[in-house]
């Protein structure tokens, strides 16, 4: 017989007694037993000490890295988010708000890297005058559009915002050219729509 064989069946209930997870019937039985059994009282004392030591030791361990959370949320987000079928680009006073929304939704999906390279490769420029209102500065030499994907740290939905920097010399035609390349209509009549496969 192993030396640690419990002397009483009650000894195997002492951890449950210590953590208050016994049924009421079991708890009363153990309480009665402890009044007359010094071996079980000693055992209970050890169980309590071991439990405290184990809890302290585990509480002092490092937690997981934030990468695990990001990985899980990205995976489930990819699975639940259907790719948008139609994107409307409204040309009205709040158009840049819509653009931001459109770009954000674009950059949440699989083909985002493709679109990003599209923007880099296509040396198109977006129109500064639209941002600064009528009479904004419009130069003569169009330059490249710079873009960056910036992950935002919201816990629920990891968003990526596309920041587009407009060169000061960009002209309306470059904005239209870019939208045209993205598959949007080129008419100034709004809304512009782009079908994304």
């Amino acid at each position: 017989m192993a030396p640690e064989q419990p002397i009483h069946a009650e000894a195997t209930l002492l951890s449950g007694y210590a953590t208050r997870t016994l049924t009421e019937e079991e708890r009363q039985h153990i309480e009665q037993h402890l009044k007359t059994c010094s071996a079980c009282r000693q055992e209970l004392q050890e169980v309590t000490a071991m439990q405290a030591a184990l809890k302290t030791a585990i509480h002092q361990r490092k937690g997981p890295s934030p990468a695990a959370f990001a990985k899980v949320m990205n995976r489930i987000h990819e699975e639940t988010q259907p790719a948008p079928r139609e994107i409307k680009l409204g040309v009205n006073p709040a158009w840049w708000e819509r653009m931001e929304h459109v770009f954000r939704s674009m950059f949440e999906v699989r083909w985002a890297p493709m679109l990003a390279s599209f923007l880099i490769i296509g040396q198109a420029a977006l129109l500064l005058s639209v941002l600064s209102g009528p009479g904004g500065q419009v130069g003569t030499q169009p330059g490249p559009v710079y873009d960056r994907g910036i992950p935002q740290g919201t816990p629920a939905i990891p968003l990526i915002t596309l920041q587009v920097s407009f060169v000061e010399t960009a002209q309306e035609i470059h904005l239209r050219g870019l939208l045209h390349e993205l598959g949007a209509g080129s008419s100034m009549a709004q809304p512009w729509t782009a079908d994304i496969p």
Binding site: I58, G63, V72, M73, A156
Partner: peptide, 24 residues
């Protein structure tokens, strides 16, 4: 169905506990 915000809360409620169990 598919409420990612609620799941993020559930995730954070259990992340450390599950991880510590796995470490053990």
């Amino acid at each position: 169905p598919d409420n990612e915000d609620a799941f993020a809360v559930l995730y954070q409620r259990y992340e450390k506990r599950v991880f510590q169990y796995l470490m053990t």
